[in-house]
Amino acid sequence: MTTSPPPHGQLGHDRFCDEIVAQTRLLTGQLAEADLTATVPTCPEWSVRELAQHVGRAHRWAEAMVRTRATAALPEDQVPGRAPADDAPATLRDWLDEGAGRLARTLREAGPDAACWSWAWQQDAGFWARRMTHETAIHRADAALAAGAGYDVAPEIAADAVDEWLRIVRFVQDIDARDSAQELKAGGRTLHLHATDTAPEAAAEWLIELRDEGVVWRRDHARADVALRGPLTAVLLAFYRRAPLDSGDVEVLGDRSLLEFWLERASFG
Protein backbone atom coordinates (compact mmCIF):
# COMPACT_ATOMS: atom_id res chain seq x y z
CA MET A 1 0.00 0.00 0.00
CA THR A 2 1.30 3.48 -0.84
CA THR A 3 0.26 6.82 0.55
CA SER A 4 0.89 10.44 -0.34
CA PRO A 5 1.33 12.90 2.52
CA PRO A 6 -1.20 15.74 2.85
CA PRO A 7 0.09 19.23 2.00
CA HIS A 8 0.39 20.37 5.63
CA GLY A 9 1.92 17.12 6.86
CA GLN A 10 0.59 14.05 8.59
CA LEU A 11 -0.01 15.44 12.07
CA GLY A 12 -2.53 18.26 11.57
CA HIS A 13 -2.23 21.93 12.49
CA ASP A 14 -3.19 21.69 16.15
CA ARG A 15 -0.72 18.89 16.79
CA PHE A 16 2.08 20.88 15.17
CA CYS A 17 1.23 23.84 17.39
CA ASP A 18 1.35 21.57 20.44
CA GLU A 19 4.68 20.12 19.35
CA ILE A 20 6.38 23.48 18.90
CA VAL A 21 5.82 24.06 22.62
CA ALA A 22 6.56 20.47 23.65
CA GLN A 23 9.76 20.15 21.63
CA THR A 24 10.97 23.51 22.95
CA ARG A 25 10.36 22.41 26.53
CA LEU A 26 12.36 19.27 25.91
CA LEU A 27 15.13 21.42 24.46
CA THR A 28 15.12 23.82 27.39
CA GLY A 29 15.22 20.87 29.77
CA GLN A 30 18.47 19.79 28.11
CA LEU A 31 19.96 23.25 28.64
CA ALA A 32 19.67 22.94 32.41
CA GLU A 33 22.71 20.68 32.63
CA ALA A 34 24.44 21.67 29.40
CA ASP A 35 27.70 23.51 28.90
CA LEU A 36 26.37 26.42 26.85
CA THR A 37 29.86 27.19 25.54
CA ALA A 38 30.37 23.68 24.12
CA THR A 39 30.59 23.29 20.35
CA VAL A 40 27.68 21.49 18.70
CA PRO A 41 29.34 18.67 16.70
CA THR A 42 26.55 18.52 14.10
CA CYS A 43 26.54 22.33 13.70
CA PRO A 44 30.19 23.13 14.44
CA GLU A 45 29.79 26.84 13.69
CA TRP A 46 27.61 27.15 16.82
CA SER A 47 27.97 26.73 20.54
CA VAL A 48 25.04 25.22 22.46
CA ARG A 49 24.01 28.75 23.45
CA GLU A 50 24.10 29.91 19.82
CA LEU A 51 22.08 26.87 18.76
CA ALA A 52 19.40 27.72 21.33
CA GLN A 53 19.41 31.37 20.25
CA HIS A 54 18.96 30.29 16.62
CA VAL A 55 15.87 28.27 17.54
CA GLY A 56 14.40 31.15 19.54
CA ARG A 57 15.01 33.64 16.73
CA ALA A 58 13.45 31.26 14.19
CA HIS A 59 10.32 30.99 16.35
CA ARG A 60 9.99 34.75 16.63
CA TRP A 61 10.64 35.32 12.94
CA ALA A 62 7.98 32.79 11.93
CA GLU A 63 5.54 34.24 14.46
CA ALA A 64 6.01 37.75 13.06
CA MET A 65 5.56 36.43 9.51
CA VAL A 66 2.23 34.81 10.36
CA ARG A 67 0.95 37.55 12.70
CA THR A 68 1.54 40.33 10.16
CA ARG A 69 0.48 38.18 7.17
CA ALA A 70 3.77 39.19 5.59
CA THR A 71 4.02 39.18 1.81
CA ALA A 72 7.85 39.20 1.85
CA ALA A 73 10.55 38.07 4.23
CA LEU A 74 10.73 40.31 7.29
CA PRO A 75 14.14 41.79 8.13
CA GLU A 76 15.48 40.60 11.48
CA ASP A 77 15.39 44.12 12.91
CA GLN A 78 11.59 44.07 12.52
CA VAL A 79 11.23 40.93 14.65
CA PRO A 80 10.71 41.67 18.36
CA GLY A 81 12.39 39.81 21.20
CA ARG A 82 16.16 39.69 20.77
CA ALA A 83 18.10 36.94 22.51
CA PRO A 84 18.96 37.80 26.13
CA ALA A 85 22.41 39.15 26.89
CA ASP A 86 22.23 37.48 30.31
CA ASP A 87 24.33 34.31 30.26
CA ALA A 88 22.23 32.56 32.91
CA PRO A 89 20.78 29.30 31.50
CA ALA A 90 17.43 30.01 33.19
CA THR A 91 17.09 33.30 31.31
CA LEU A 92 17.74 31.56 28.00
CA ARG A 93 15.24 28.82 28.84
CA ASP A 94 12.53 31.34 29.72
CA TRP A 95 13.17 33.25 26.50
CA LEU A 96 12.86 30.09 24.41
CA ASP A 97 9.67 28.96 26.15
CA GLU A 98 8.10 32.41 25.76
CA GLY A 99 8.83 32.54 22.03
CA ALA A 100 7.52 29.04 21.38
CA GLY A 101 4.30 29.78 23.26
CA ARG A 102 3.75 33.00 21.35
CA LEU A 103 4.36 31.26 18.02
CA ALA A 104 1.91 28.45 18.84
CA ARG A 105 -0.80 30.93 19.87
CA THR A 106 -0.38 32.97 16.70
CA LEU A 107 -0.49 29.87 14.52
CA ARG A 108 -3.66 28.60 16.22
CA GLU A 109 -5.40 31.94 15.81
CA ALA A 110 -4.41 32.13 12.14
CA GLY A 111 -5.30 28.58 11.14
CA PRO A 112 -3.28 26.55 8.62
CA ASP A 113 -4.60 28.25 5.49
CA ALA A 114 -3.85 31.85 6.49
CA ALA A 115 -1.77 33.37 3.69
CA CYS A 116 1.71 34.64 4.53
CA TRP A 117 5.16 34.62 3.01
CA SER A 118 7.44 31.62 3.26
CA TRP A 119 10.62 30.66 1.46
CA ALA A 120 9.04 27.45 0.21
CA TRP A 121 6.31 25.79 -1.83
CA GLN A 122 3.48 26.81 0.52
CA GLN A 123 2.72 30.41 1.40
CA ASP A 124 0.65 29.87 4.52
CA ALA A 125 0.68 29.45 8.28
CA GLY A 126 0.41 25.67 7.98
CA PHE A 127 3.85 25.58 6.40
CA TRP A 128 5.34 27.45 9.36
CA ALA A 129 3.63 25.24 11.95
CA ARG A 130 5.14 22.15 10.37
CA ARG A 131 8.55 23.69 9.65
CA MET A 132 9.02 25.05 13.17
CA THR A 133 8.05 21.69 14.69
CA HIS A 134 10.79 19.91 12.79
CA GLU A 135 13.25 22.78 13.13
CA THR A 136 12.90 22.48 16.89
CA ALA A 137 12.90 18.68 17.03
CA ILE A 138 16.06 18.34 14.93
CA HIS A 139 17.93 21.06 16.78
CA ARG A 140 16.92 19.34 20.02
CA ALA A 141 18.83 16.36 18.63
CA ASP A 142 21.82 18.63 17.97
CA ALA A 143 21.75 19.78 21.60
CA ALA A 144 21.47 16.21 22.86
CA LEU A 145 24.43 15.12 20.73
CA ALA A 146 26.47 18.05 22.04
CA ALA A 147 25.72 16.96 25.61
CA GLY A 148 26.21 13.25 24.97
CA ALA A 149 22.59 12.72 26.04
CA GLY A 150 19.97 10.37 24.70
CA TYR A 151 17.46 11.48 22.10
CA ASP A 152 14.12 10.12 21.01
CA VAL A 153 11.13 11.59 19.22
CA ALA A 154 7.59 10.33 18.74
CA PRO A 155 7.34 8.11 15.64
CA GLU A 156 4.67 10.23 13.95
CA ILE A 157 6.87 13.33 14.29
CA ALA A 158 9.96 11.51 12.99
CA ALA A 159 8.05 10.12 10.01
CA ASP A 160 6.63 13.50 9.06
CA ALA A 161 10.09 15.03 9.40
CA VAL A 162 11.34 12.58 6.75
CA ASP A 163 8.40 13.49 4.49
CA GLU A 164 9.12 17.19 4.89
CA TRP A 165 12.86 16.76 4.29
CA LEU A 166 12.16 14.96 1.01
CA ARG A 167 9.82 17.76 -0.04
CA ILE A 168 12.49 20.34 0.76
CA VAL A 169 15.03 18.51 -1.39
CA ARG A 170 12.62 18.43 -4.34
CA PHE A 171 11.78 22.10 -3.83
CA VAL A 172 15.47 23.03 -3.97
CA GLN A 173 15.86 20.98 -7.15
CA ASP A 174 12.96 22.87 -8.71
CA ILE A 175 14.14 26.39 -7.90
CA ASP A 176 17.97 26.41 -7.72
CA ALA A 177 19.91 25.17 -10.71
CA ARG A 178 23.20 25.73 -8.85
CA ASP A 179 22.46 23.64 -5.78
CA SER A 180 24.16 20.27 -5.29
CA ALA A 181 20.70 18.68 -5.07
CA GLN A 182 20.62 18.87 -8.88
CA GLU A 183 23.09 15.99 -8.92
CA LEU A 184 20.38 13.79 -7.38
CA LYS A 185 18.63 13.73 -10.75
CA ALA A 186 20.23 10.36 -11.25
CA GLY A 187 18.37 8.35 -13.86
CA GLY A 188 15.92 6.48 -11.67
CA ARG A 189 18.20 5.01 -9.00
CA THR A 190 16.32 4.17 -5.82
CA LEU A 191 16.69 4.32 -2.05
CA HIS A 192 14.57 2.65 0.59
CA LEU A 193 14.17 3.87 4.19
CA HIS A 194 12.80 1.25 6.57
CA ALA A 195 11.98 1.83 10.22
CA THR A 196 12.14 -1.49 12.03
CA ASP A 197 10.35 -0.50 15.23
CA THR A 198 6.96 0.77 14.05
CA ALA A 199 3.71 -1.20 14.12
CA PRO A 200 2.43 -2.55 10.77
CA GLU A 201 -0.53 -0.16 10.79
CA ALA A 202 1.89 2.77 11.21
CA ALA A 203 4.70 1.47 9.03
CA ALA A 204 7.36 4.06 8.30
CA GLU A 205 8.95 3.10 4.99
CA TRP A 206 9.81 5.19 1.97
CA LEU A 207 10.79 4.42 -1.60
CA ILE A 208 12.77 7.33 -3.05
CA GLU A 209 13.47 7.50 -6.79
CA LEU A 210 16.12 9.81 -8.21
CA ARG A 211 14.44 10.63 -11.50
CA ASP A 212 15.87 12.87 -14.19
CA GLU A 213 13.17 15.48 -13.50
CA GLY A 214 13.72 15.40 -9.74
CA VAL A 215 13.28 13.32 -6.63
CA VAL A 216 9.94 11.53 -6.14
CA TRP A 217 8.94 9.32 -3.23
CA ARG A 218 6.12 7.46 -1.62
CA ARG A 219 5.48 5.58 1.59
CA ASP A 220 6.00 2.00 0.49
CA HIS A 221 7.76 -1.27 1.15
CA ALA A 222 9.75 -2.01 -2.00
CA ARG A 223 13.16 -3.19 -3.14
CA ALA A 224 15.70 -0.49 -3.99
CA ASP A 225 19.34 -0.08 -4.95
CA VAL A 226 20.16 0.71 -1.32
CA ALA A 227 18.24 0.46 1.95
CA LEU A 228 18.73 2.29 5.24
CA ARG A 229 17.22 0.26 8.09
CA GLY A 230 16.92 0.73 11.81
CA PRO A 231 14.75 2.25 14.55
CA LEU A 232 12.86 5.24 13.21
CA THR A 233 14.68 7.84 15.31
CA ALA A 234 18.02 6.43 14.18
CA VAL A 235 16.91 6.44 10.53
CA LEU A 236 15.80 10.06 10.90
CA LEU A 237 19.11 11.14 12.42
CA ALA A 238 21.15 9.36 9.76
CA PHE A 239 18.98 10.69 6.93
CA TYR A 240 19.18 14.21 8.37
CA ARG A 241 22.97 13.85 8.55
CA ARG A 242 22.96 14.01 12.35
CA ALA A 243 24.44 10.54 12.88
CA PRO A 244 26.99 8.55 10.87
CA LEU A 245 26.01 5.48 8.91
CA ASP A 246 28.46 3.42 10.95
CA SER A 247 26.96 4.44 14.30
CA GLY A 248 25.75 0.91 14.92
CA ASP A 249 22.14 2.11 15.19
CA VAL A 250 21.34 1.61 11.50
CA GLU A 251 22.34 -0.81 8.78
CA VAL A 252 22.90 -0.15 5.09
CA LEU A 253 21.99 -2.87 2.60
CA GLY A 254 22.98 -2.66 -1.05
CA ASP A 255 24.82 0.19 -2.73
CA ARG A 256 26.16 2.21 0.20
CA SER A 257 27.86 4.65 -2.18
CA LEU A 258 24.44 5.70 -3.50
CA LEU A 259 23.21 6.54 0.00
CA GLU A 260 26.42 8.47 0.67
CA PHE A 261 25.92 10.26 -2.67
CA TRP A 262 22.44 11.31 -1.47
CA LEU A 263 23.62 12.46 1.96
CA GLU A 264 26.38 14.58 0.46
CA ARG A 265 24.01 16.37 -1.92
CA ALA A 266 20.63 16.55 -0.24
CA SER A 267 20.24 20.21 0.59
CA PHE A 268 18.18 22.52 2.74
CA GLY A 269 18.59 25.16 0.06
Rank of each mutant, 00 (worst) to 15 (best):
S4G: 08
P6N: 13
Q10H: 14
Q10S: 14
G12D: 15
H13M: 15
C17P: 04
V21G: 03
A22K: 08
R25M: 01
T28F: 02
A32K: 14
E33H: 13
E33K: 07
D35V: 03
A38S: 02
W46P: 03
S47Y: 09
Q53W: 08
R57Y: 14
A58L: 14
W61N: 09
E63C: 15
V66E: 13
T68V: 11
R69K: 12
R69P: 03
A70Y: 09
T71H: 11
A72N: 08
A73I: 10
Q78N: 11
V79H: 13
A83W: 13
A85I: 12
A85F: 09
T91Y: 08
W95I: 09
L96Q: 11
L96S: 08
G99E: 05
G101E: 15
L103G: 02
R105A: 15
T106C: 08
E109M: 06
A110P: 00
G111H: 09
D113W: 00
D113R: 04
S118W: 06
A125F: 08
A125C: 09
F127N: 10
A129C: 12
R130P: 07
R130S: 09
H134G: 05
A137M: 14
I138P: 02
R140K: 12
A141M: 10
A144G: 05
A147W: 05
V153L: 15
A154Y: 10
A158L: 11
A158Q: 11
L166K: 03
R167M: 13
Q173T: 05
Q173L: 11
D176T: 08
Q182K: 09
L184E: 10
L184C: 13
R189I: 04
L193W: 02
L193C: 08
A202V: 00
A202M: 02
A203F: 00
A204Q: 01
E209D: 03
E209P: 02
V216E: 04
W217A: 03
A224W: 07
D225K: 05
G230T: 05
G230P: 09
L232K: 02
T233Q: 01
A234F: 00
A234T: 01
L237T: 03
R242A: 06
S247V: 07
S247M: 07
D249G: 05
V250G: 01
V252Y: 00
A266F: 06
G269V: 12
